[in-house]
């Protein structure tokens, strides 16, 4: 697979409206920059091959390369991606906070990774004013500040690149499917960049059906809440078809149909619900409030989870076969929709 340059990245991704603002092209050169959830090319670049093209999750994927990098095997093409096991999980007794979207598994795993020195630092999504912002976390006690789902595209990879540029190694990163795909590519280091060696330690994928256009959604929130502080947002399990926003004073529901209008085109072509290129993937556990679904994919991921459980950061439970079918169905649906979208695009 040929790695091209900025010009082709623009033609194949950004100009077609397929950019998901993950930040994979940001902070590696002076040309791509992120501002308020959108990425722009500030000056033309005629170079090829380029890191921006190589890392972008929306350019053509070398699945075998990613699979070899993450799992040491060839790609198998399954709906849930490759995995070693799937469990139900939630934060264990070592974790004090209770402000979790679901079971607090993400916070628990990163707290453990930092405490135990599995990673040197983490890049997680925090909040700055009304917009989500990737943050470099060095102390386990700061992990909690990044809890809760933002539902908006975040240039997480920009913060990763910046940390790498600042000389950091062995980073732990949480991200959605597109973001962990970019992380896996960076790990594969297709352009052989010295600074990328050992830059990514652990990646945690977040289940994702879609994310919202940051500018549209933040404007919507500002309009609807009148600037009140948002405590949490949630999509209750089907068949609710609603979007819940909880502010300090009230809880409001919006028809999901309205919210879906703010999904960027780039999400429509994503086939990956469970973030298949991560070491571990975490999502909601439908029908078991307070728990997460945890997919353990790589050997490294397995070691991470086992240690976290052993040290009481994480509690495990069984993940029944019926849930697995349900999860596979959901993942399959997303994949089919993406295929439909791409077929339509080609026409």
């Amino acid at each position: 697979m040929e790695i091209l340059g900025t010009k082709e990245l623009m033609e194949q991704v950004r100009d077609k409206g397929l950019c998901v603002s993950c930040g994979a092209c940001v902070e590696i050169c002076p040309y791509h920059k992120s501002y308020k959830g959108k990425i722009a090319l500030v000056f033309d670049c005629d170079m090829t091959p380029c890191q921006c093209y190589a890392y972008c999750p929306q350019t053509e994927t070398d699945r075998d390369l990613l699979s070899r990098t993450m799992f040491g095997t060839m790609d198998k093409g399954e709906a849930l991606g490759q995995y070693r096991s799937i469990i139900a999980a939630k934060a264990g007794s070592k974790i004090k906070s209770n402000r979790f979207q679901n079971g607090g598994t993400v916070s628990a795993l990163f707290t453990h990774a930092l405490d135990s020195g599995l990673i040197d630092a983490a890049v997680l999504t925090g909040q700055n004013d009304d917009l989500p912002e990737p943050m470099l976390i060095e102390n386990a006690c700061d992990v909690a500040s990044c809890a809760t789902t933002k539902y908006m595209a975040t240039p997480t990879l920009a913060a990763v690149h910046k940390a790498i540029r600042d000389g950091r190694k062995n980073l732990g990163v949480a991200g959605t499917a597109c973001q962990v795909k970019a992380l896996a590519t960076i790990k594969a280091n297709p352009l052989g960049k010295a600074e990328q060696e050992n830059s990514i330690g652990l990646s945690l994928g977040l289940f994702c059906t879609w994310s919202l256009d940051t500018r549209k959604f933040s404007a919507f929130l500002a309009g609807e809440t009148g600037g009140e502080k948002i405590v949490s947002m949630d999509v209750p399990p089907p068949p609710a078809e609603t979007f819940k926003i909880k502010t300090e004073n009230e809880e409001r529901e919006f028809p999901l149909k309205e919210i879906r209008k703010m999904i960027p085109r780039g999400c429509a072509c994503c086939p990956d619900m469970t973030a298949e290129w991560a070491d571990v993937s975490v999502g909601a556990y439908e029908g078991k409030p307070g728990w997460n679904t945890l997919i353990i994919r790589s050997e490294k991921g397995e070691q991470w989870v086992e240690e976290a459980i052993a040290d009481d950061y994480l509690v495990r439970d069984e993940f029944p076969r019926s849930r697995l079918e349900h999860l596979t169905l959901g993942a399959d649906n997303k994949r089919k929709k993406a295929e439909e979208f791409l077929t339509k695009e080609k026409k």
């Binding site: 590696i28 050169c29 040309y31």
Partner: peptide, 13 residues
């Protein structure tokens, strides 16, 4: 210089 990550920003742009 000319490598990816700069591509002569100062002299080219």
């Amino acid at each position: 210089g000319e490598s990816c990550g700069c591509n002569r920003l100062c002299t080219r742009i």
